[in-house]
Write a protein that binds this DNA or RNA. Structure first.
Lengths: 114, 114
DNA sequence: CGGTATCCATCATGATACTG
DNA sequence: CAGTATCATGATGGATACCG
């Protein structure tokens, strides 16, 4: 089941790869959120993708899922300690992106929504 | 042509997203490499993907491409200052991956090559 | 050596509808 | 509210062959 990584960066990229995981991590980094709140926080994501990404992050021990058995149902997602450490490791990258956001937007390949 | 990013991390992930860019960046972070050297350095990549990724990184001003007009042809790739700053911003992430490589390998979803 | 071109398989993502 | 199920599609990655 396991796979081998070429280096730590390879492993880390596997964990936060894809369009959504970094955004979900960021949304959860200050506060825990319910499913619906998370959906609104991560603009543009579908329910299916949100669930899918959350399940993957849960299996990686990045995200903790807690169910409150009540009516209406309530499920709260939060970062695990590992998730928080990942978020901290991503801070310099986020800062780099912000520092260069203009250049990056001007050299981006595709335009998703006009 | 441009696109808007939700946050700096979003922008950064767009730059190093995909399976290969982080590995290429890492391969170039110590020394400039010729096309063939790079191909051997990034294990498993095809010529097509390598070229494709390099072109994208070139257009993002992450990688510099220098052609030596001679026989046999020689093309050398190196990091730009922006590329080096990106690499530094990725160091904590790489360290995080290394710190947790065992957990990450054991919770990885797929196994690419047995 | 350092590419290009073409075709193809797969996977990630998305739209929509339905459920406990 | 918090999901699941199904189907469709487009991007991503890979194999192979050819070119200057």
């Amino acid at each position: 089941m396991a796979r081998q990584y070429n280096c730590g960066l390879d492993a880390a990229m596997d964990v936060i790869g894809g369009k959504w995981k970094a955004l979900i991590l960021w949304a959860l980094h200050t506060e825990e959120l319910r499913f619906g709140e998370l959906r609104r926080a991560v603009t543009g994501i579908s329910e299916k993708m949100l669930i899918q990404q959350l399940r993957e992050m849960e299996s990686r021990k990045i995200v903790h899922r807690e169910v409150f058995r009540q009516v209406p149902p309530k499920v709260v997602y939060s970062l695990t300690p590992l998730g928080r450490s990942l978020n901290e490791a991503l801070l310099p990258l986020g800062a780099w992106g912000q520092d260069n956001v203009e250049l990056l937007e001007s050299t981006a390949a595709r335009e998703p929504a006009a």
